[in-house]
Nucleic acid binder design. Sequence first.
DNA 1: AAATACTATTTCGTATAGTATTTTGCCAAA
DNA 2: TTTGGCAAAATACTATACGAAATAGTATTT
Lengths: 259, 259
Amino acid sequence: MPQSKLVKVKAQPRRSILSDETYLMIRAMIFAHEIVPGDRVNIDALAVQLGVSQTPIREALARLESEDLIAKEALKGYRATNLLTVTEFADLFSFRLLIEPYAAEQAAILIDSKGIKELQSEISNAKEAINFNDERLIEAITEHDARFHALIAKYSNNKTLASAFTNTHCHLHLFRLYVASQKHLIEPSDKTSFIQDLFSRYYQSDRGQLAIKQHTAIAKAICAHNPEKAKAEMYSHIESSLKRFTPDLHKVQTDRKTS
Amino acid sequence: MPQSKLVKVKAQPRRSILSDETYLMIRAMIFAHEIVPGDRVNIDALAVQLGVSQTPIREALARLESEDLIAKEALKGYRATNLLTVTEFADLFSFRLLIEPYAAEQAAILIDSKGIKELQSEISNAKEAINFNDERLIEAITEHDARFHALIAKYSNNKTLASAFTNTHCHLHLFRLYVASQKHLIEPSDKTSFIQDLFSRYYQSDRGQLAIKQHTAIAKAICAHNPEKAKAEMYSHIESSLKRFTPDLHKVQTDRKTS
DNA sequence: AAATACTATTTCGTATAGTATTTTGCCAAA
DNA sequence: TTTGGCAAAATACTATACGAAATAGTATTT
């Protein structure tokens, strides 16, 4: 058994890096609405709650700050940033319309067999998820959507693009998770907030089937190495998604011009 | 003198936030090549050098990490990230070609009189800088270029775009500063590294006059509220800048496809 | 009612100590 | 000389405690 010497302690579980784990945990708390937008984030309290010292918390918050998920006010402390405003939401989609069709185009050129498998498997999973009940459906579709678009950004093979995508998309993701969490507020009341309005428009109608259909078309074009088609499909997908969210976008854009 | 009461202690100098200042100082050290790409960054040493404790250093490094100017390896410490590779450089320009023409277009629509003044003054400054001697010229033009493009990103009024621009552009800026710092290596030697080759191609020929000429055209279109022209001028400006850097770009792109 | 003073809380930074891990340098064996 | 391994030094990571300074809230005085 000469191997025992070579292998040695290689298998010992890596010591966890608290500042990294803390970062992920705080991030998860934000996405899970345990930390609500606008909340103040107290370092001491967080340290106690997570059972670590202040040092890892500080590093985690510094990172979250440069992702704009946490804002720091000098001498006043940290607080969770607010949700996207209507304008910011529209801006984010304008940005997506710039970079994601290009990403799809490049992915169609550069994707390899491993990537094709990964993409197809993501589509399959999504199609299964359609059969979920309402409770899990919306969350499943939201998560699938995030993974799908991230995959394409990754296979564009452009790190600058992929990193810009990641940095901006987390806000959209958070926004969607928040919209979804407001589901129970829809039925009983007739007051229609921006959020609730969005919810009914986006999820009530087709339960996300349209999005998955469009994803399928995009994936098909990419896997067939058809850049033009992939680009066009991605463009109309994002456009359609934006239209569903805000059919009155033209009004928003007009507002911006006059502001 | 009722004013004296109203003004009061408003002017008292804000206590400096060490973690912010430390962040800026380390960042400046990177841009000044006091911290060279690939260098290990020792927290203790930095704390002693800057005369602060570890806490602000850690927060600063965490922020720099998410900008990708500093990379963290678990349990091994931080190190300054390497310069852009040829591929990353090409990717960055592809990305710029996606977002900056759009930014110029939107700026032409949305810019106000204050913005027009700011843009025009930046152009004036640049034209003065052309008369600098070689020593200061390159740095002046590099800094002007960064400010000019940042201004347009700002006046696109799209925060998502502006933030993506900021995050990606610092790498280009660092790259250019590094290229410029290699100037003295050009003349005497005949060995032609990638960097030195770039330098001669980009700066020796016209001392940046072409870039400023193009900037002037872009600014003119924006200030005249001509979106189409602004967009087109910005596109060809970036394209021309890319071509000057890498006339053999097609080769790079071919390489990517086969990788 | 407004200005002021006082108190409590919180942030920000320092200092220090201890543990885990990596790196380095040395020594022995091939 | 080279290789491999082990011990020592260096470094990263975390915890803890403390203090100064600013903010926020409350009470007091004018």
